[in-house]
Structure formats: structure tokens, C-alpha cells
């Protein structure tokens, strides 16, 4: 057993275990914290693949940003004790199973299934990713498109959150 296999199994166990805990935990806040383990496991998997920038971004964005916002949201929501388990709702079952099934079919029907991807040892991932994102012959257009989409979402959120002046005066 070499280090790569060891760390891969460790991190994937962490990712899958965290996800499982998040699914089956009864307390919403606890499942959010279980997601942290899952995020860290996925970050570790990225590291094993040599994508260090992606791994750190995973931690920074998902663990440091999105998870904190999840938790913030969860704490604002009053706890609901007798929520029926999601599996009893047929629609929820369909919504949950369908994407997994699509993914599985896609994965199993791929001809290269089973072959191990050969990875070049990346040296300067940051530089490469930066150049790929910002070069006109690279991913500049999708990158800018995503930025504009996010900006639009931001402006929309600000507009929705803003109280109108007349409302404020009425108070």
C-alpha cells in the first residue's frame, strides 16, 4: 500500500462518511457540520489528484463561505420537530433518485470506465489556471459571463432586500 492509495481511501471515506452523516442526521445543524467533513474530504481528494489550488478553493469557498451561510440560515429558521421523513414523500424520492440515476447511467455507459486517468504532475497550478481563465483563447468569455451573471444576482438580491422608502416612513 503506497501513500497515494492510503490518502485516497482516507479522504474518500471522510467525504462519503460526512455526506452520509449529513443525510441521516436528524438535526439540521448537525448535518450542516457533517458537510464540513465531506468538504474537507473532497478537498483532500483534489490534493491527491495534484489540484492544490482547487483543494484550497474548496475549503475557502465551501467550508469558509457557503457552509457558514448555511449555518447562518439554519440558525434563523425555527426548529421543526415532527418533520415527516423525506423518503415518505414520493415527489422528494423522485427528485432525489433521478439525478443519481442519470449520473450512474452516464458513468457506467462511458467507454473509458475503469481506465485510470494519467495525470501530469502540475507545477504552477495557480498560474496555469489564471492564464486559462483570462486568456482570450482560453475561458475568458465563460468567465466574464459567469461574473456578469453573479453581478446580476447580487444587484437583484440587494434590490429584493432593500426596504422601500415609503415602507420605512410608514413604520
Amino acid at each position: 500500500m503506497n501513500g497515494e492509495v492510503l490518502s485516497f481511501s482516507l479522504f474518500s471515506a471522510l467525504a462519503v462518511g460526512g455526506a452520509g452523516l449529513a443525510l441521516f442526521s436528524k438535526s439540521a445543524v448537525r448535518s450542516a457540520f457533517a458537510l464540513l467533513a465531506s468538504f474537507l474530504g473532497v478537498a483532500g481528494l483534489y490534493l491527491v489528484l495534484g489540484a492544490d489550488f482547487l483543494a484550497v478553493t474548496q475549503i475557502l469557498l465551501y467550508a469558509g463561505g457557503i457552509l457558514v451561510l448555511y449555518l447562518f440560515g439554519l440558525m434563523l429558521v425555527p426548529p421543526e420537530g415532527d418533520e415527516p421523513r423525506a423518503l415518505r414523500r414520493p415527489l422528494a424520492l423522485v427528485v432525489a433518485v433521478a439525478p443519481v440515476a442519470v449520473l450512474l447511467i452516464g458513468f457506467l455507459s462511458r467507454p473509458s470506465h475503469g481506465a485510470r486517468a494519467v495525470l501530469a504532475e502540475p507545477t504552477e497550478t495557480v498560474k496555469e489556471i489564471g492564464l486559462a481563465l483570462l486568456r482570450p483563447d482560453g475561458w475568458l468569455l465563460p468567465f466574464e459571463y459567469a461574473s456578469i451573471l453573479l453581478l446580476a444576482a447580487l444587484v437583484g438580491a440587494v434590490h429584493l432586500a432593500r426596504r422601500s422608502v415609503s415602507n420605512e416612513e410608514a413604520e
Partner: peptide
């Protein structure tokens, strides 16, 4: 001396936030 230096530092520092929320909850 990892290539990501300060980026790694920011990411790790953001984990303390989770720890604090965890403690509070």
C-alpha cells in the same frame, strides 16, 4: 513553502469561523 501560501492561510483561517459557530451552537 507551498505555492499557494497565503491562499492556503486564508482558507484555513476561515475554518476557525466554523469552529466558533460549532462552539456557539
Amino acid at each position: 513553502d507551498i505555492d499557494l501560501g497565503v491562499y492556503f492561510l486564508l482558507a484555513v483561517a476561515s475554518l476557525t469561523t466554523i469552529g466558533v459557530i460549532m462552539a456557539g451552537w
